[in-house]
Design a protein around this nucleic acid. Structure first.
Lengths: 199, 199
DNA sequence: ACTCATAGTGGGCGCATGCCCACTTTACCG
DNA sequence: CGGTAAAGTGGGCATGCGCCCACTATGAGT
């Protein structure tokens, strides 16, 4: 029988198959049968490795969020370098790739999955909340350096950026928004707080 | 047989029943059987008055958007009066009521309905696009009065406000966001362009 | 080589959905 | 007041879903 590593492989194959279905056919086409067919295995496999389908989806989402969080955290490396608009535009454009957008729409459209995730992560749509936290933490660091106003409300600015940029990507179902739209949005939001670097 | 007025009544009753189901049980519980049961009539009625269920939902959405647009347009009456933050906060809080939020989540979660609406209104989620247009038009008027900077990018600011405020309301499933959150968001976004009224 | 726990397979059940349609009821019109 | 077209009713269909389960195939341990 396969070792634990092989079991991990099957799970990852199912996750990858689910992601392909999700990106190709949308959230409502992501059924247990579609996933196993895409993975090329029998439909019973899914039920052997996961308690139920929403449990499978919850693990898929959490798995993808882990990658997402890593890239969001990388924003910190750019604290104090370049311009805020550059750093934020680059990070937000990178974060809201097709998979992230598809995951958000999956979570918001499946009641059972939402309920399941709420037990693990009590507040908000996980992927958006995490992104907002990363942005807020970045802005706080920049504020400490005096690159944004000392009274800037970073806990409001961060979710604002996430909400605005997410809407830019959300309704185009795969197609990225017009070039420059993300930059214009970022620029508009931080215009009120950005300031010349002192001394 | 009923006159045209009576037919209108049945349709409106079905719309109201659908809205009740949507607000009480969420988008995924909004089935044709649930609507007719809530309206207290046989399930065949829906099929007599509408070609299919997605067609019914599309007309429901368009009907509710009509009310929504009326209230969004009222924002224009406050051009030049009060403060921008007051006017925008009041309007956005009013617009993102439970019904509007539920309609948006309905549209974004039903592929068939989305496709149907796209034929009538080609761009974006109708209700959000309309709101953004109303905000943009308001901001343009305020800019003409010199209450915001002449170089303010109102076509970016408006969708930004809509995206940010919508996210505030979207994930709480009925419960309004924390008091003051809308105002803080509005203030943060317009901080970059608001200016003292000249002369 | 034999055993047997484990992974994989796919038929099929119970349920819910949207839709069809034969039937009944209603109420206006000549 | 009787005829009739329209509105209303609900049984039932095909479909697709998640899930169960009897069955087969696999391969490590003795």
């Amino acid at each position: 029988m396969p070792t634990g590593v092989a079991i991990r492989d099957v799970r990852d194959q199912l996750f990858d198959a689910a992601e392909r279905v999700l990106l190709r056919d949308g959230p409502s086409a992501l059924t247990s049968r579609a996933v196993t067919a895409e993975a090329g295995c029998a439909k019973g496999v899914l039920h052997r490795h996961f308690a139920d389908f929403d449990g499978f989806l919850a693990e898929l989402v959490l798995d993808r969020i882990a990658r997402f969080d890593g890239r969001a955290a990388a924003l910190h490396d750019s604290v104090g370098t370049g311009t805020l608009a550059d750093n934020l535009t680059r990070t937000l454009t990178d974060l809201f790739g097709p998979t992230a957008v598809a995951i958000v729409s999956l979570v918001t459209s499946r009641d059972g999955l939402r309920a399941r995730l709420r037990r693990a992560r009590p507040t908000g749509v996980p992927i958006l909340t995490d992104a907002a936290n990363a942005i807020a933490s970045y802005l706080t660091a920049e504020r400490a350096l005096g690159r944004i106003a000392a009274d800037a409300d970073v806990d409001t600015l961060a979710p604002t950026l996430i909400g605005a940029v997410h809407m830019l990507f959300a309704d185009r179902q795969g197609n990225p928004p017009e070039a420059g739209a993300v930059r214009r949005t970022v620029t508009a939001v931080i215009a009120g707080v950005e300031q010349e670097t002192p001394r």
